[in-house]
Design a protein around this nucleic acid. Structure first.
Lengths: 228, 228
DNA sequence: CTAGTATACTTGTCTGACGATTCTGCTCGG
DNA sequence: CCGAGCAGAATCGTCAGACAAGTATACTAG
């Protein structure tokens, strides 16, 4: 993700590596929503002990990337309309605070600018997954630049679920990536101008668009399977 | 905590009970900051297996109630000035969104009103711990009333650390609890009046006061141990 | 007094196992 | 033919014990 900028080593422990791998498979939609993930399956697929797999599933559950109740097997959640609204309400809360803080000091995080460049570079690609990742990286950089560990931690959890839904729908995008890039640019510009109000307003608009696309996709899918 | 209102059963699983118990001991300051918590110690104290203790420590670490790095033993964190500022910045972000949402529909959560009553009841007590708990319950009720699962989840984590610092300092309170009660009343009133702006402003003021008390306490403590 | 080494402590991971709970499919009676 | 109850299978929660690997501390040698 940001290997050369922060010199972060790859996951050193086995549990960590396992967690990262499963997490990626979930958010990229390789493991479909509704699919069951038993401890034994994970243990088998990766040739690790069951306790290790268990720890992995528990971490993912804590982040909302899996749902599970006692004595029942974990499943990848299928977010409904209420979930998406709730998710975007929470997301907006966190990101508003972030862009407002940045705009107050008119600091445009260079990591966000880099993510923007990366997004433009892959805008024409067919690799939707990398577009989604660049999008996530942009928002992540925005919040990280505020310098608040706890805000960043909250945002990470939220983004995990965002990534999950985007990953599930990524097979059919409904808008050209360039539109997203332009919305991002608007936000950065407002921050650079030191205008917190406008930055928040642009952000809100951007998130509103994104949420709308997700909800539209959801409804379309549901009506499809209703006719089938 | 809220046994009769939500009919929540006590923790059913062993891990859950263990987690709750250790958590309480930490936030109430029974386990001092800087104190080391080895897996073996927990396992011994509660007569559970080490993996169970390990899972417990991992959960607490994820919530920020313990700090630990690979192959090193977990310790109760001692929050410094930067931590407290960061914590209250994050807290304000979440709670602002909550009171604004409530004020927009002018709904005063009755759970918060109940917590207020409870706080008045114990205001004269010497039992600081119960005052702290009532305070926490008030803010918790405020956020819960919004009805956003994800906002509540973020807030729970934040409040955990808030509880931790308050628990550590609770031996010598610097203000009369009634002051806090009045600040709470102001917030509720603004919500009831359907005035999001004023509600946010009152909340910000309240949190500012609380943060100031914490920081003052911290400085006092540090200067004490400097002279010693 | 400093530097390097050796030992004890702690954690990471694994194997294997047993009881408890949930789910599934089957049988039996209406 | 269909629904209810039951038995078996699958899965999870918890435990015990063990070994390897890393960290911190104390000790020794220069």
């Amino acid at each position: 993700m940001d290997g050369q900028t922060s010199f972060s080593l790859g996951p050193s422990s086995l549990t960590e590596a396992l967690y990262e791998s499963v997490r990626k498979r979930i958010v990229n939609g390789e493991i479909a929503p509704g699919e069951k993930l038993t401890e034994i399956r994970i243990a088998g697929e990766y040739s690790v002990a069951r306790p290790t797999a268990k720890a992995c599933l528990e971490r993912l559950t804590a982040l909302g990337l899996l749902r599970r109740t006692t004595h029942k097997t974990a499943v990848v959640p299928k977010l409904d309309e209420d979930d998406i609204r709730d998710l975007y309400f929470s997301r907006e809360t966190v990101e508003r605070a972030a862009v407002a803080a940045l705009a107050r000091t008119a600091t445009v995080p260079q990591a966000a600018a880099r993510a923007q460049a990366a997004m433009k570079a892959v805008a024409g690609d067919m690799a939707f997954a990398s577009q989604v990742e660049a999008d996530i990286a942009f928002h992540s950089a925005l919040v990280a630049a505020v310098g608040s560990r706890r805000l960043a931690r909250m945002h990470e959890v939220i983004l995990g679920e965002v990534h999950l839904t985007m990953g599930q729908f990524q097979a059919h995008r409904t808008t050209h990536p360039m539109n997203v890039v332009h919305e991002h640019d608007d936000i950065l510009k407002a921050i650079g101008d030191g205008d917190p109000e406008r930055a928040q307003q642009r952000l809100a608009h951007h998130l509103d668009q994104a949420q709308g696309r997700l909800l539209g996709q959801l409804r379309r899918e549901r009506s499809e399977e209703a006719t089938a």
